[in-house]
């Protein structure tokens, strides 16, 4: 028996989901971070974040079409994490690393938190 493994299939699907997001096609939730709004697909959010997984598997909350995050969350940090969810690329700017890490902790994105820890450690001269 033979099986064809398309090695770039996962990234091709993700690219298309990101195109759908940028064109606001089938996006089904607005995330409110302070006064900024981000449109996204619930399935992508819950596939990447423990917090969104808990929200959208809760039968009382799964039909919400807007979710307000804790006002302490930095919209810039959230934007970087949302971009990561849809592209697999995490932009780690030194000026934003703490807000990216704190937002990742809040969103329960443990692997990203670990990566931020390593980045901070590697940039610490002491």
């Amino acid at each position: 028996d033979s099986c064809i493994q398309f090695t770039r299939h996962a990234s091709d699907v993700l690219l298309n989901l990101n195109r759908l997001r940028s064109r606001d096609i089938l996006t089904d939730v607005t995330i409110l971070v302070n006064r900024q709004q981000f449109r996204a697909h619930k399935t992508v959010l819950m596939a990447c974040s423990g917090l969104f997984y808990s929200i959208f598997t809760d039968s009382h909350k799964c039909n919400l079409n807007a979710i307000s995050l804790d006002p302490k969350v930095d919209p810039e940090g959230f934007a970087i994490l949302l971009e990561f969810m849809y592209t697999s690329r995490l932009t780690l700017k030194e000026s934003l690393i703490m807000s990216i890490m704190n937002t990742a902790i809040y969103l329960q994105m443990d692997h990203v938190v670990d990566t931020c820890h390593r980045f901070i450690k590697s940039s610490d001269p002491s």
Partner: peptide
């Protein structure tokens, strides 16, 4: 998948949704 001969296909797997119509 044990015993299955897996062939790697490195080309695009699906159509690409355009940025805008």
């Amino acid at each position: 998948y044990e015993g299955v001969n897996t062939i790697k296909e490195r080309g695009r797997s699906i159509h690409e949704i355009p940025r805008q119509d």
